[in-house]
Amino acid sequence: MSKDQPAPLPGQSDKIVQVENLSKKYGDNIAVNGISFTLNKGEVFAFLGPNGAGKTTTVEILECLRNPTGGQAKVLGYDVSKRSDQAEIRKRIGVLPQDFNAIDRLTVRENINYFGAMFKHQLDADKLIELVDLKDKRDEQFKKLSGGLKQRVGLAVSLVNDPDVVFLDEPTTGLDPRARRDVWGVVERLRSQGKTVFLTTHYMDEAEYLADIVSIIDHGQIIASGTPDQLIDTHGGKKTLIIRDAGQEGLKQLPQGLPKAELRNAGDIAISLNNGELTSILMSLGQTPLHDKEIEVRRPTLDDVFLNLTGRRVSEEGN
């Protein structure tokens, strides 16, 4: 922000979330250690990190559930540390807490209206039910729903006050792949409506698929930020050329002068590519018995980004 511009009034800024040098200590444990980032209007922002990285702590500071021990955070231009501002924030944000469950014995619709009644204005329950695709479960009690459907109720509940920003804390953890896709679908719909979404996840593919901007957080610090493409380009390492089912034999048939090749997963040959090498390698492969093998170029993923930055894989941390 340039100094000579007047600061926009609270509630009118395009900077939906502004965090500067934020930290949170629990005793000696530093859960969040001086992080800074900005979330602009209409963006889907993913906070990506392993268990215990400090995702929930950060989100809950923004939701005014926890007090920061250092730094500054503004949501919609309001200061999360000021009591009077907190009231304004609460009216305008939508929240899906990690591991949230709605009320067991209320129906989907009743739950939406229950949480909706906490606000001055609420969106029509039926519209929300449509948005999360729960029309035939509308009058079903929450406890009778499967995990994926429960999570969709949570999403609907988080949108009930037509919030200016939605915080989704690990919205797909513990769901089966199909249910995850469904949740992704809802987030994509929100994006297309121009909603600002802050989501946390420890799934690389989720961040890559959904987010405009990804911040990777580890041990309470942001270790990289950017669009998924930027992160991959900067930290992902080289692309890999894969020759399927070539085996030990194939290794011997490789032309001379290629970068180092290795055998992976029962017979695939993997060759790390430097930029601009692909065409020449493909042409030289065409001269060998390997020319009829299936060939594929694999781009690094956020998994590789995390691995390169930390030396660990997120999935190894378990969940």
């Binding site: 559930l65 609460r90 929240v95 807490p97 949230f100 906490m118």
Partner: peptide, 8 residues
Amino acid sequence: KKLATTPL
């Protein structure tokens, strides 16, 4: 927790 994020 969810209720605490609302005006309630």
